Simulated assay, not measured.
Amino acid sequence: MSIAQTRALLLTPQPDEMLAAVEHHLRQEHETHLETGKDGSRFVDKDGFCVTFQTEEKGLQISLRAPHEGMLVLLRDQVVQHVHELSPEAASDLRWEGFDCALRDYPSNFRIGTLIARSRPVTGLLRLQLQVDDIPALGDGLHLKVMLPSQPSRAPAWPRLGANGGLQWPKGKDALHVRYLTIRATDPKAGLVWLDVVDHGDGLMSTWAATAKVGSTIGLMGPTGTPVIPQVERVFLAADQTAMPVVARMIETLPPQVRGTVVAECDSAEEARSYFNSDKLEIVALDRASFRSAILEQATEICRVEKPQYAFFAGELLNARELRAFFRGDLALGNRHHSSIGYWREHE
Rank of each mutant, 00 (worst) to 15 (best):
M1D: 12
S2H: 10
A4W: 11
T12S: 14
P13K: 10
P13H: 10
Q14A: 15
D16C: 10
E17P: 01
M18E: 09
A20L: 13
A20F: 07
E23R: 14
H24V: 06
H24R: 14
R27P: 00
E29H: 13
H30E: 11
T32R: 13
H33Q: 13
K38V: 03
D39F: 05
R42V: 02
F43V: 08
G48C: 07
Q54F: 09
T55V: 14
E57N: 13
I62H: 01
I62D: 04
I62T: 02
L64K: 10
L64H: 11
A66H: 10
P67M: 08
P67A: 12
H68P: 08
M71F: 01
V73D: 01
V73C: 03
V73Q: 04
L74A: 05
H84Y: 15
S87W: 13
A90I: 05
A90T: 07
D93N: 11
F99H: 07
Y106K: 14
T114L: 13
S119E: 15
S119H: 03
L125W: 04
I135A: 06
P136K: 07
A137L: 09
G139E: 12
D140K: 15
G141Q: 09
M147T: 07
S150M: 14
P156K: 13
A157S: 08
A157G: 00
R160M: 10
R160H: 10
A163T: 05
G165A: 03
L167I: 07
G172H: 07
K173S: 09
D174K: 08
A175P: 00
L176D: 06
V178Q: 11
R179F: 03
T182F: 04
I183N: 02
I183S: 03
R184T: 04
R184H: 12
D187R: 09
K189V: 10
K189Q: 15
G191E: 10
G191D: 08
W194Y: 06
W194I: 01
L195D: 01
D196E: 03
D196V: 02
V198L: 11
V198D: 02
D199P: 01
G201Y: 09
T211W: 08
T217S: 12
T217V: 04
I218E: 11
M221H: 01
G222F: 06
G225I: 08
T226N: 11
V232I: 13
E233P: 00
R234P: 02
V235G: 11
V235Q: 15
L237H: 12
L237E: 11
L237V: 12
V247I: 15
A248M: 04
I251F: 02
T253F: 05
G260Y: 12
V262L: 12
E270R: 12
S274N: 13
N277M: 14
S278K: 12
S278V: 15
E282F: 08
E282Y: 09
I283F: 05
V284T: 05
R288P: 00
R292G: 02
S293L: 07
A294T: 15
I295F: 07
E297H: 14
Q298C: 11
Q298M: 13
Q298R: 15
T300Y: 05
G315E: 10
L318Y: 10
E322G: 00
E322R: 10
R324F: 06
A325S: 11
F326A: 02
G329L: 03
D330T: 14
L333Q: 04
G334T: 15
G334M: 04
I341R: 09
W344F: 13
R345K: 15
E348Q: 14
